[in-house]
């Protein structure tokens, strides 16, 4: 009954199995699920307090503030992404057994996005409203986040995989991945800003969509290669 390796059905089993496991793990700890979201809301709250509660000022900086907060919230969830799996040995079993490793890596990142990027995207228009973001900019903001957060999660995954075996992961992880987040930040903020000033945001959104497609097809290979290094040493 063992599926021949590489057959379509066993690849699907591999993907689905990893996705199911990771979602179960994520929903098994509701507090860890909620923390990045709470962080997102708290950071957003700091801006009116630290800069100005003036509606005009807030509206001007809302897209940037929302995106930077989303970026930092994503970063927050990354450190634990592979660490527990490494500590309990499930990561080495995955690297050893899964063929190809690409599939469970994609499933792992998809599960992570579903519990971080997706809720951030859904929450963003509400917080946008609190920051007096122009109503016509809310949909482009959401679309931008929906297309951009997968790239953030994937690029962040490379950093998380590269630092998985290290004791001092956190700060280094931020240094590794934040510069790589720059294009997503620029494109995402521009889409919301263009729409806010009555212009067409399609351009940056299409670029983001292209970036997401490219990242989904290529970045998991880098993550898989980094994980192989991460499980060495023992």
């Amino acid at each position: 009954m063992r599926a021949s390796p590489g057959s379509e059905a066993s690849l699907w089993v591999l993907f689905r199995g990893q996705l199911r496991r990771d979602l179960k793990l994520a929903f098994g700890q509701p507090s860890e699920l909620a923390n990045p979201l709470a962080f997102f809301v708290v950071v957003i709250t700091l801006f009116p307090l630290g800069v100005s509660p003036e509606p005009g000022v807030l509206a001007g900086m809302a897209p940037g503030v929302l995106w930077i907060a989303a970026l930092l919230a994503t970063l927050l969830g990354l450190e634990a992404l592979f660490r527990r799996d490494r500590d309990d040995g499930t990561l080495e079993q995955m690297v050893l057994r899964a063929q190809p490793l690409y599939l469970p890596v994609v499933a792992r990142m998809l599960a992570h996005w579903m519990v971080t990027g997706l809720p951030l995207t859904l929450l963003a228009p509400v917080l946008g409203g609190m920051l007096n973001l122009a109503p016509e900019a809310r949909l482009p903001l959401m679309l931008g986040l929906a297309l951009g957060t997968p790239v953030l999660v994937l690029l962040g995954g490379v950093g998380a995989a590269l630092t998985v075996g290290l004791r001092t992961g956190g700060v280094l992880l931020a240094l590794l991945v934040l510069p790589l987040f720059v294009p997503v930040l620029i494109l995402g903020v521009s889409a919301a800003e263009l729409a806010g000033s009555g212009l067409d945001p399609t351009g940056p959104l299409l670029w983001l969509a292209a970036g997401t497609s490219f990242a989904i097809t290529t970045v998991p290979f880098a993550i898989a290669a980094a994980l192989r290094i991460g499980v060495e040493t023992g």
Partner: peptide, 29 residues
């Protein structure tokens, strides 16, 4: 390979852990 680290996730049940090991190997039975 059964190493020092169990390859078992403490947050999941025994059955879920074993099911995942089956999925990893592409078991369809």
């Amino acid at each position: 390979f059964v190493g020092h680290r169990p390859g078992i996730s403490g947050l999941l049940s025994a059955a879920d852990n074993l099911r995942w090991h089956l999925d990893l190997a592409g078991w369809r039975g």
